[in-house]
Computed example of a mutant assay.
Amino acid sequence: MNWRTGMILCLLLAAGVTGWSVWRQYHPDQDVVLTSRPDYVLHDYEIVSLDKLGKESFTLRGPQLQRDPADKTMTLNTPHFEVPDRTGHYWNVDAKRGFVPAGGGQLQLTGEVIAISPPQSPPATRIETESLTLLLGEHHAQTSDAVTITQPGLTMRGIGMRADLDRQHVSLLSQVKARYVPQH
């Protein structure tokens, strides 16, 4: 083999490597693209979810919802939930952030979570915590964080909570302290 044949082979190899490099730069792996951005984003949305019988399970509103295509999870910015109780009146639940795991049977709320009972169903109840998991099909809520529950004349604090929003039954799990001030 003479020097010209060697030079031509080196130039062909260099051209092939350069062409492949340019092609890769303009055609990134599909997996990299799919995991680096959501497959859809909703702005100023309202979602009404129905149960198996076609009855409203909850309504969700918010400024932004994003779905991750890789693990089928959703993140929510400042979500607002309306969860009906058995009489058709609504609990209002707000938080700074929300996360829906794959499967969608629950919602994890974090950051200044506030749940307010329906005004038509006394006693007026306000629940405040830093995190809350809503079990959507069951209308139950729970947390292992510190919780403050306020009703007219009564303030209760504790660690951990379980709530049946349908029946307006709330239980604090440990380190419970209550302050009762009679209403006149």
Rank of each mutant, 00 (worst) to 15 (best):
L60A: 02
L50H: 13
R162S: 07
Q175I: 08
N92E: 15
D94A: 12
L134R: 04
L165K: 02
Q151S: 10
I116D: 15
L165V: 15
D71L: 01
P152S: 06
Q64L: 05
Y90L: 08
E138N: 06
F58D: 04
G158V: 06
L65N: 06
V100P: 00
I47L: 13
D164I: 10
T129P: 04
L109R: 10
A95P: 07
T125P: 08
V113I: 12
D166I: 05
S57P: 06
V83M: 04
I127R: 09
T73P: 13
Q108L: 14
I149W: 05
E56C: 09
F99I: 00
L107R: 09
D145Q: 11
K52Q: 15
V93D: 09
A115C: 12
H140A: 06
E130R: 12
P118C: 14
L53Y: 13
T150F: 06
T143Y: 15
G54W: 08
S121R: 06
G62E: 03
S57T: 07
K55N: 09
P84V: 01
E82H: 03
D145M: 08
M74H: 08
S131A: 15
T148F: 00
V147P: 10
P69Y: 03
E130K: 11
T133C: 12
H169K: 09
P118Q: 12
A163D: 00
V48N: 13
P101V: 07
V170H: 13
G153V: 12
L135K: 10
D145T: 02
P84D: 04
N77G: 00
D164Y: 12
D166M: 03
R167F: 12
H89E: 14
Q64N: 13
H89P: 06
V147F: 08
D71A: 02
T73M: 08
A70C: 03
P152W: 10
D145N: 12
D145I: 03
